[in-house]
Nucleic acid binder design. Sequence first.
DNA 1: CGCTCGGTTGATTCGCTTCAAGCCTTGTGG
DNA 2: CCACAAGGCTTGAAGCGAATCAACCGAGCG
Lengths: 246, 246
Amino acid sequence: MTDDPKLDAIGSLIARLRRSDMISENEVAALAGLISVCRDYPARAVVARPREHLEKSQLLVEGFVARQTELPNGRRQILAIHVPGDFLDLHGLLLKSLDHDVVTLSPARLAEAPHAILRETTAQYPHVARLLWFSTMVDAAIHREWIASLGRTAAGRIAHLFCELQLRLEVVGRADADGYALPLTQIDIADATALTPVHVNRTLRHLREAGIVDFRTGHVAIGDLPALRRIAGFRPDYLYLEQQPR
Amino acid sequence: MTDDPKLDAIGSLIARLRRSDMISENEVAALAGLISVCRDYPARAVVARPREHLEKSQLLVEGFVARQTELPNGRRQILAIHVPGDFLDLHGLLLKSLDHDVVTLSPARLAEAPHAILRETTAQYPHVARLLWFSTMVDAAIHREWIASLGRTAAGRIAHLFCELQLRLEVVGRADADGYALPLTQIDIADATALTPVHVNRTLRHLREAGIVDFRTGHVAIGDLPALRRIAGFRPDYLYLEQQPR
DNA sequence: CGCTCGGTTGATTCGCTTCAAGCCTTGTGG
DNA sequence: CCACAAGGCTTGAAGCGAATCAACCGAGCG
């Protein structure tokens, strides 16, 4: 914690970006300058709707947020799960509106970055623009890995989700190799993996009984990370966590 | 066709971008200036590999190209299908290497854009930079729609693929409402939808017998577009084809 | 000609869904 | 302080959609 609330707000963002690139103090200040205000939301709050014109993008400071859409059969499909340090709707800067909902999965704190300031800052600091572009490209890489879940079994899909969140949360200091807090319901897991809650429950039991991972009461306890990654087919390179000039 | 091969190469790219934004003649020239050379490839050629350091990005001028990865069970998962006017590995500009393969599905012509020139041009023409960023954001939106296929049945997944390609190809003048050339095998469709070739075959037969769509010998003949879109749950807004300042 | 690859069809199996019921925890109001 | 409702978790039985296994066809091609 610092004495500057804007610096606090971007702490996780900076931690994440610094895993992938060098960032100067000037650029940190520029990123902090993007933030206007912070807002707190309860769980299950809608923080962005499709087809609404956007004037700001939102940075997740604390908590868990999902992008989701409704399928023709009426079921909810979670398209992405965001952790602190992630921009939730940076793509709205150029797309102008979203094609999906953004909702909190847990109580969450969001920092708002007005598009007017984003435009100014990206024009003035080309490297900041590149960092934000990079950030949306990693989002796309994560999307692709979720597409690959089309070809995974139930255990593989769930295991992959747990592996991915373990690493992404570790980067922002909210997980270690043994586990992490994950305040999601089994229904959320079901909507993220496109499985039924019943089958998620059974699969979680199998994973627990095998001593691989224990997900209960909002906590992922990893018993055997290598086995978990094997089941998931998890290769972490798609998160681009190697530091190099971008 | 023009007398400038570089302008020909970016013709479909310009057509696509002009559906979403205004582009000046200066910017068209700047985009044409990105291109160094064109290369022709046969079907099933690998045009980019994971973990290799990239010095250029490639623009698809003609043909069909897929991004794909290998799943733990040994099966190929197609993550994206590209049509003329698409950049295949623009994300390599900042990611520096890819996490997947890029392979031609049909004979294809690719235009190469060296990263050095991409950097110069995006620095000099901020709006060109925004257009390219926009382009990668639409790629991500398409990825999300493929994630939604996790919750679709076999017919829904295939129908959605056909709907999406119909619209994307129409934008670059290679499809109309009745159908389009699609030089893919049923095995390619299977790898894109994470279904078995056998089941793809059966599902295609059902769609054909219902008079909705007939996919044979490299051609999609659409019999009932509304029905096809209904089965797919297709809403075209995720392609962001409305012209507005980006 | 014979090989290969893609497409087609049938029989069987399996993973996941559906339907149904019961349990536990939490919160709330009388 | 307890009754009760609601939401999430758990488990069983039956059904369905897609995978698997297997065979055959047909076109293109060396």
